[in-house]
C-alpha cells in the first residue's frame, strides 16, 4: 500500500502540528492550567521587579538628585502603567500563592473546589488591585 512507504510516512509526520500549533484549535485551554502558568509568569515578573525596587530605595538613599531622576521615570505614563501591572501581578501571585498553601495542607483538590478557588483568586486579585489604588489616592 502506498500509505506504508517510508516517504509518505515521513511526509505524514512532517505535516503533524507541532506543540505551539496545538494550542487553541487542538488543545483546549483550561482555567486550571492557565492560572498555574500565570503563577510562574507573575513570579518571574516580580523577581525582575525587585531590581526596580532596589533601584528605588538606592536612589532615595543616594540623595535628592538621584531620587528626582528615578521619580521622574516612575511617574511617567509608561512608569505608572508598569507599576499598575506590577501591583496586579503581585496581588494575583499572592492570592494564588495562598491557594498553593491551602493545597499543601491537602485540601481543595477536587474538581469543584479547584475551579472555585481559581475563580476566587482571579476576582480577589482584581478587587484588591482596585482597592489598593483607590485607597492609596483617596485617603
Amino acid at each position: 500500500m502506498a500509505e506504508n512507504t517510508t516517504a509518505s510516512k515521513s511526509a505524514q509526520i512532517a505535516a503533524r502540528p507541532l506543540s505551539p500549533f496545538m494550542l487553541g484549535p487542538y488543545y483546549k485551554f483550561q482555567l486550571t492550567s492557565v492560572l498555574s502558568f500565570a503563577h510562574r509568569l507573575t513570579g518571574l515578573g516580580l523577581s525582575m521587579g525587585t531590581v526596580l525596587i532596589a533601584i528605588w530605595v538606592l536612589a532615595a538613599a543616594a540623595g535628592p538628585w538621584s531620587y528626582a531622576q528615578f521619580a521622574q521615570v516612575a511617574r511617567s505614563i509608561p512608569g505608572e502603567v508598569l507599576l499598575f501591572a506590577w501591583s496586579w501581578a503581585l496581588l494575583y501571585h499572592l492570592c494564588n500563592g495562598i491557594r498553593h498553601l491551602v493545597w499543601d495542607t491537602v485540601h481543595g483538590f477536587d474538581l469543584k473546589n479547584t475551579y472555585l478557588g481559581g475563580y476566587l483568586v482571579v476576582a480577589l486579585s482584581l478587587v484588591l488591585t482596585a482597592a489598593v489604588w483607590i485607597v492609596a489616592f483617596a485617603f
Binding site: 528605588w56 521619580a71 516612575a74 511617574r75 507599576l83 496581588l91 489598593v132 489616592f137
Partner: peptide
Amino acid sequence: FVFSIARYHV
C-alpha cells in the same frame, strides 16, 4: 508593600 508603593511612589 504594594499599598506603600502605590502611595509613596509619588
